[in-house]
Design a protein around this nucleic acid. Sequence first.
RNA 1: GGGCGGUUAGCUCAGCUGGCCAGAGCACUCGCCUUACAAGCGAGGGGUCCUCGGUUCGAGUCCGAGACCGCCCACCA
Length: 857
Amino acid sequence: MSLKDRKRFEPLEVEPRIVQRWLESGLFHPEPEGTAAENYSIAIPPPNVTGALHMGHALNGSIQDALIRYHRMGGAHAKWILGTDHAGIATQTQVEKRLKGEGTSREEVGREQFIRRTWEWREEFGGTIIEQFKRLGASCDYGDERFTLDEGYVKAVLKVFVDLYEKGYIYRDNYMVNWDPGSGSAISDLEVEDREVTDTLFHIAYPLTDGTGEVVVATVRPETMLADVAVAVHPDDPRYQDLVGRTVTLPLVGRELPIIADEYVKTDFGTGCLKITPGHDPNDFEIGRKHGLDELSAIGEDGRMTDLVPEYAGLTIAEAQAKVVADLDARNLVRAREPYLHTVPFSHRSGERIEPLISLQWFMRMDELAKPAIEAVREGRVKIHPESQSRRYLDWLENIRPWCISRQLWWGHQIPVWYRGEETYVGAQPPEGDGWTRDPDVLDTWFSSALWPFATLGWPDDTPHLRAFYPTDVLSTARDILFLWVARMVMMGLEFAGDIPFEHVYVHSVIQAPDGRRMSKSLGTGIDPLALIEGGPRPPVFTQGGTFPAYGADAVRFGLLAMSSTQDVRFSEEKVAQGQALANKLFNASRFVLLNVDESATPAPSTATIEDRWILSRLQAAKADFGARIEAFDFSKAALGLYDFVYGELCDWYLELIKSREYDAALSGHLLHVLRETLLLAHPVIPFVTEELWDNLPGTDGLLAAARRPAVDEHLRDPDAEHGIERVIATVQAVRSWRDASGVKPGEFLEAQMAGLDGLEPLCARLARLTPVDAGGREPVATIPVAGAQVDLLTGVDPAEAAAKVEAQREHLRKEIALVQRKLANEGFVAKAPEAVVAKEREKLARYEAELEALES
RNA sequence: GGGCGGUUAGCUCAGCUGGCCAGAGCACUCGCCUUACAAGCGAGGGGUCCUCGGUUCGAGUCCGAGACCGCCCACCA
């Protein structure tokens, strides 16, 4: 169907078709030519293979695509590095679920078979999110898709591990870790989230060994007392001065525990006595190491009691707690119990309560690597936007702690370490000889993600891709992985790729549900971007229910960009609707042009009339503004500025101003030119509708996505034309407003004599529906004041209503005049305010007075 | 406990280094089928800019105190 017969932009019909054309063009797959300084690249935060597109992906995709398309149209070789993350725990959990459904388990099928099954799973489901990115219009390099477990990537990971081991940064140690019973693995501090829980706080009496009394300690974990090795008090606590150095006898166990002094103990909490359990509490662990205490484990990695105290061996934690309390009660040693609300660590992944345990793990020392990463941001080589985030980055790196990098999983990069008796071998290739067994653990997924910007480009080989696209330009991400991922990429990039991984880090908003809660599937507050694009059901957070209209990808992209900010924002369906309105408006404006124009005309700017000069001038302003906003990562202003130009200038005024003109070659060419440039301008934000229109526009070849954006032409800026059209707009609005208030039909032509418009009368007359006449001495029935001009109406107005209207207008003017006069009468103001400000006030006064005078006559 | 951000129209948000007659989109009211778009067009109503104090000729904008909301970090058993 011809564009002229299509009254609306129908995204569901158009967008899939456009995606195909883009993909077939090969445009998104740039050859590795030139240097990274000339080229433009962004490495996508790799979504989990298990993932489906959520609002965060959609927002970040819209941001990155706007950047990539903008720079591609600026003439750069632009590569958006694409791929997915193997996501150790998440993926393993999915496959385990599937095995469970088949009546089997990970343990039953064995490691090799399990990994094979996981690859199969990935083949089947891993492409989902990639397809969804295509639907969004994201111009990623789909021809070069990477995976954090593909062959080349594994090579990079192993090399990094071995190098860091050889440098002495990676070591094995017994240490307190966050044990996640859900996944049966240690997890890092960053994967832990705190939740509020009400527990019972037990006050338990520990008798002094010499029988002279007791000390009372408070705990919410009585079962861990089996592994107690000391009792601590504050060194300055007057109550316990004489206890330090003596011992207590641990009830139920009989072990003699020293009473030690440590400043960690709070004198104002509980009894001021603290049981020390280095095996099961991170703080106690620190104190234990400081004082050289034993590290005993009462709870094992299976979540059951160890045989440390045989009568409890094998019990679950809950059972053990019940038994310990019962046994203490039997001995009358529980002095008090009270409900206690506190925060407790839970696994971010499995949702289970973290069990702090001592375990033999691989660690990575971070302080040496942190130093250059701190410098890079301090010196501005890596710039974080908004700037306030760099403080958080620096604070974290300055207080960095060793990173536990081993995970007790099967799906991931298996640690390249082999053991044979007392021997340890570390290397990218298995050791020679027999009898070696490989460490069963895999690396934390973030270890491999940390190499993303260079491992995806072929590192450790010196590849053309690496030379052409590393360092990348921008890394766009949410705040929550600033430490987990961004900081580590900077460290690894500097250490291994020899340069920063990206020049700019853009930290985007988190989009919250419309009610201000976090978007989450389980809360029912999640909004599926595809439901917005294609018209799916509204989730329960929306009060209105029903289904979304099929807004289309352009609308969603526009809406998300318009919503985005430097802080978290609530989802606003209105902004998406605004995007849809913009796409449709542009579509219809193009139809209007094509319906009227001489299609054989050559697109070329014309300066024939003041409105032509005006729109060219405004177009340059819009281009300059949009570019500056994009470069400054101010996507909201970029999108809304586009809207304002298309709606508020191009459609509302320019197209209306030209309607009575003859569409000769000059005007036709000019309209085609303005439209072309508008499409070029808007494409990074709303790529689909602009591409579709481009295809229908005479004189365009090839894809808009591949076209070059023309520079801002400063010669086309025209302040006189801008001022003139501003006056036309003010006049037309004044007349319309007057009509509306006076009850005069909008369509009725009124005779009027205009003054002070310097030749702009015909433009004003047409849009205001006035018939210009010479009053020839007739008294006007009404006078409409406009800035610097005057319109006398000679017909069509009820004199009484007009008089009332005039009086109201006078009243308003008198108030404004009084205000300005008061300001100017203030000596302080005149003396101290900048001259320009004072002049502006004087000018304002003169204008109001002139308008008032016109009304008085 | 420490740090950061926010509080502007019914809703979601703009308002830079102080000069604002305080804006936008949506919602609302009124009027229009004006030959691109009625999912449209035009015109309106609507705000003690959280509170109190201060600086200044002038404060939504700067300073101080407080209230409330959100996030991050560290966490007292």
